[in-house]
């Protein structure tokens, strides 16, 4: 079985920040492997260790700067990586679900995996829609918000649990090829070993342009326009206790005694 994992480098924001136009000012931004994708990578690597997957390939949409994040996925055990970037993508304000679907679908078609694992959502724009959209686009089956995957694939089916609201899980069998969107907590993502980090430097990382994967620039034109970004107005009417830790702890202690919940 061949597995493709979508890997995104997400922007992280410091507690204090400023907004310039429809973006957060660059000096307050960091970059990290998308948390959900970390679990997707781990699941794929475990499938490889269990002898079920023969090859794990990652695919990323992003500029050269994000190669460090891609290497992180390789260091954790993926075999090789594909990174798609293009001058045409540089100026795009908001890469919407349809644009990402076009790009990722082209890579999935070229790679022809049995299983695609993607994170439920990205920590920055949080659309939570791309995995299912890619599946529908390619005629793959799919399951959203998967928090357990059986590693036997009996009868060519992926047996999964989907994490519904309120502590309920749905037990579902999904035909392959399929896209599963992976929820946090499905496994315990490993830290890359030093050996893994060294090996990752030697693993293939193919860079492809839109033309290379056969996607026309007009296919990624978005109908969505990001028009404003602002800090939500604080609705806090909390009483802020101030003072040293022993003073604030004492205030809280008084409250708990007043409410009769602690003595």
């Amino acid at each position: 079985m061949k597995i493709l994992v979508t890997v995104k480098e997400v922007a992280t924001v410091e507690d204090e920040f400023e907004i310039e136009g429809t973006e957060i000012a660059e000096q307050y931004l960091g970059a990290d492997l998308n948390e959900w994708d970390d679990y997707a990578i781990e699941e794929a690597v475990q499938l490889q260790e269990d002898g079920i997957a023969d090859e794990v390939v990652t695919v990323t949409i992003g500029p050269e700067d994000c190669e460090q994040t891609v290497r992180q996925a390789l260091a954790k055990g993926a075999d090789r990586a594909v990174r798609v970037w293009d001058d045409a993508l540089e100026d795009v304000d908001l890469l919407d679900v349809n644009a990402k679907t076009e790009i990722l679908s082209a890579v999935v078609e070229a790679e022809d995996p049995d299983l695609v694992l993607s994170g439920v959502q990205a920590g920055d724009d949080s659309f939570g829609a791309t995995g299912v959209s890619v599946a529908e686009n390619l005629g793959f089956q799919w399951g959203a918000v998967v928090n357990h995957l059986e590693h036997d694939f009996e009868d060519g089916l992926a047996s999964v649990r989907r994490e519904l609201e309120g502590g309920v899980e749905e037990l579902t069998d999904i035909e392959l090829p399929a896209v599963l969107t992976i929820q946090t907590g499905i496994n315990e993502p490993r830290y890359a070993s030093l050996r893994g980090i060294r090996q990752a430097q030697q693993k293939p990382l193919d860079v492809q342009t839109l033309a290379d994967i056969g996607v026309d620039e007009s296919d990624i034109e978005t109908e969505l326009e990001l028009t404003d970004m602002y800090e939500p107005e604080s609705e806090s009417d909390a009483t802020f206790w101030e003072g040293s830790p022993d003073e604030t702890a004492s205030e809280l202690g008084d409250l708990l005694r007043d409410k009769g919940v602690a003595q």
Binding site: D96, V97, N98, T101, V120, S126, F127, G128, A129, T130, G131, V132, S133, A135, E136, N137, W142, G143, A144, V145, R162, E163, L164, E165, T181, T222, E223, L224
Partner: peptide
């Protein structure tokens, strides 16, 4: 919802419509 996210992106793709979530 978890189920909404299991079909909304699919119908958007099928109908060739933009999707705005959450």
């Amino acid at each position: 919802s978890v189920n909404g996210l299991d079909y909304a992106p699919a119908i958007a793709n099928e109908l060739d419509l933009p999707v705005v979530t959450d």
